[in-house]
């Protein structure tokens, strides 16, 4: 079991969360060339090591989180809210 320290609820088992996917993807503008969309939707770095990924605290606060995790050891390095506004508000407080 991975334990994820949720910034809103505290440390919880990963079974409370739903794994989203690669959190480093930046989706292009709606009118961007189709090749940019292809790359964002279909291609992955597939890192062995520390990657940023999204998790959804489905059985908790229901917030989306950005988690830095090692895909080899499953060690969690950092957890922050995925929503930019909430993240900024929490960092400033």
């Amino acid at each position: 079991m991975i334990r994820i320290p949720c910034p809103f609820c505290g440390e919880r088992d990963h079974s409370e969360f739903t794994y989203g996917g690669d959190g480093s993807i930046v989706y292009p503008d709606l009118d961007a060339p189709i090749s940019d969309w292809h790359d964002a939707v279909f291609l992955r770095e597939n890192i062995r090591g520390v990657q940023t990924e999204t998790w959804h605290h489905t059985s908790g606060c229901r917030m989306w989180l950005l988690v830095e995790r090692d895909t080899m050891t499953h060690e969690i390095l950092s957890v922050r809210p995925a929503h930019k506004g909430i993240r900024a508000a929490m960092e400033n407080s």
């Binding site: 079991m1 990963h14 739903t18 794994y19 690669d22 062995r48 990924e53 895909t71 499953h74």
Partner: peptide
Amino acid sequence: DWYKSYAQRGNLP
């Protein structure tokens, strides 16, 4: 196991 991983070991859930 629902999350990406290179570890050749499984989780309990």
